[in-house]
Simulated assay, not measured.
Amino acid sequence: MIEFNSTNDFELSNPEELLQWLTSVIEAEQKQMGEINYIFCDDAYLHKLNVEYLNHDTLTDVISFDYTSGDVISGDIYISVERVEDNAADFKTSFKDELSRVMVHGLLHYCGYKDKSEDEAKEMRAKENLYLSVR
């Protein structure tokens, strides 16, 4: 089950469409859906999590807490709406497209993809682009 939550007044304009798309990504990756929570927040909220849990004193757009067991993917994906807005402007893309990229990025971590090395990041970006092309 995928749930969308918010710590602020942010609301998705198309939750059913996103739910179907994210479910199709899970199926394409040959995984099973567990409990996945998307939590939309602001920079301050996500920065606090980044410092507290990851010891990173930086702003970020997404943090994924992975509770996956075997092929059943589960976890909490925190997304800073402010960071997504700024990144969309910086990358000259729409908010919708940047939000979708961040959402699928978190999900792909649960499917086993990493992005620490250059090669891993390249593979992650290719997967993001693949799934964004069918959104």
Rank of each mutant, 00 (worst) to 15 (best):
D9K: 06
M124V: 10
D42H: 13
A89E: 13
H109W: 00
A126F: 02
F91C: 09
Y53S: 09
M103F: 11
L22I: 11
I39G: 03
L99W: 05
G106Q: 10
D57V: 06
F91N: 15
M124H: 08
N5Q: 10
S74I: 04
V104M: 10
N50K: 10
K116W: 08
K122C: 03
N55G: 07
L22E: 02
V25Y: 07
S100C: 06
N8Y: 09
L130T: 10
K31G: 02
L18M: 12
E3A: 12
L99R: 05
K92T: 11
V72M: 08
S94Q: 01
M124Q: 08
V134L: 14
Y38K: 02
E3D: 10
G70I: 08
T60C: 15
K96G: 01
W21R: 11
S13Q: 15
V51F: 05
D57T: 10
A44F: 01
D57L: 04
M33N: 07
L54Q: 07
A126C: 00
K31E: 06
M124R: 06
A121Y: 09
V104N: 08
N55R: 15
H105D: 03
L46Y: 10
E98G: 00
T60S: 08
A121N: 06
S133A: 13
N50Q: 09
D42Q: 13
S100G: 06
D119Q: 15
E3S: 15
L54R: 13
V51K: 15
F95V: 07
E85W: 01
C41S: 13
V81Y: 07
T60N: 04
E82S: 14
N55H: 15
E123C: 03
N50D: 06
E118S: 12
L108A: 11
